[in-house]
Design a protein around this nucleic acid. Structure first.
Length: 276
DNA sequence: TTCCAGGGATATA
DNA sequence: TATATCCATGGA
């Protein structure tokens, strides 16, 4: 999509494929805060941006222009993807609702930790826990806190994670951090999607749904389809009355192929936010 | 196979 | 207003 860079600002004039509220509130990301109507603080890794959206312009203000061009994947053309997916009638309706959604390219380590915390959890509580981790373990930069490093998290005991509100996920995270210490996360990027998915599922706190989220949001793999309760409901109403999530996932990936992950976001947002 | 483990949100009574 | 249910993973 088109954008202009001016000093510390990225300016977007064509809002046909960018809506900050839809992007942040479609369930893919947890480190952000609404400052006021149409104005958001967005934190990723150790970077910060202020995003302001009005009727016909978006301004992304940040010291890290290149980082956020990649983060918002601004060089990707979503209009052609939407056109392709709109051939499906169910998708067409969802895309009209969530036309401004983009899949963020999030920091891999932050994505893994965040989505383990997200398992069987609700969004306000997830955000609260992640904020606690940032503010208690993250580096203070200007007026915000970075996401904590692996080393910082390795120094925490299980009880600290309980205090962060992780509940029974505390021991899962404690174990996971020690497994990650033995891994080369960047080397995993070379694996094909199915090998990578199996590897992720073998780690503590990561099941099929969380693995798919990590693949989609952390590895930018679009040939996955995270199936949660909302997608299950949607599938039963719009496609087939099946309850087995493994079967639902298989059918959806076969249907949408390399655009599965993107299709999932439109369907999830429309179902979750507007129940259609 | 079935049960259980935070706790905040949502649905139901 | 009170109470029940939901959420996705792993271990007993």
């Amino acid at each position: 999509m088109k954008y202009i860079i001016q000093n510390d600002k990225i300016i977007i004039n064509d809002l046909s494929e960018f809506d900050i509220t839809q992007i942040l509130e479609c369930g893919q990301v947890f480190s952000f805060e609404k400052i006021e109507e149409n104005k958001y603080l967005v934190l990723s890794k150790n970077k910060k941006a202020i995003v302001t959206q009005s009727d016909n312009i978006v301004v992304i203000q940040t010291k890290d222009i290149e980082y956020f061009i990649n983060y918002f994947d601004l060089d990707k053309d979503y209009n052609s993807i939407k056109q392709e997916l709109s051939k499906n009638e169910v998708l067409k309706r969802s895309i009209e609702i969530g036309y401004g959604i983009r899949i963020l390219k999030q920091d891999l380590f932050e994505t893994i930790i965040s989505f383990v915390i997200s398992a069987n959890n609700n969004i306000p509580r997830i955000r609260k826990s992640i904020k606690f981790l940032r503010e208690n373990l993250g580096e203070k930069i200007d007026d915000y806190y970075a996401f904590p490093t692996l080393d910082k998290l390795l120094n925490c005991d299980v009880d600290f994670f309980v205090k962060a509100g992780l509940g029974y996920r505390s021991t899962q995270l404690y174990k996971l951090l020690r497994q990650i210490e033995e891994l080369d996360l960047n080397a995993l990027k070379l694996l094909d999607t199915n090998e990578l998915r199996n590897k992720l599922i073998s780690l503590s706190g990561i099941g099929p749904k969380v693995a798919d989220c990590i693949l989609l949001f952390g590895f930018s793999r679009f040939d996955v389809f995270p199936v949660d309760t909302w997608i299950e409901k949607m599938f039963c109403e719009k496609f087939e009355n099946i309850k087995d999530r493994k079967v639902i996932r298989k059918k959806l990936v076969e249907k949408f192929g390399n655009l599965s992950g993107i299709a999932q976001q439109y369907l999830f947002y429309a179902k979750r936010s507007f129940n259609v």
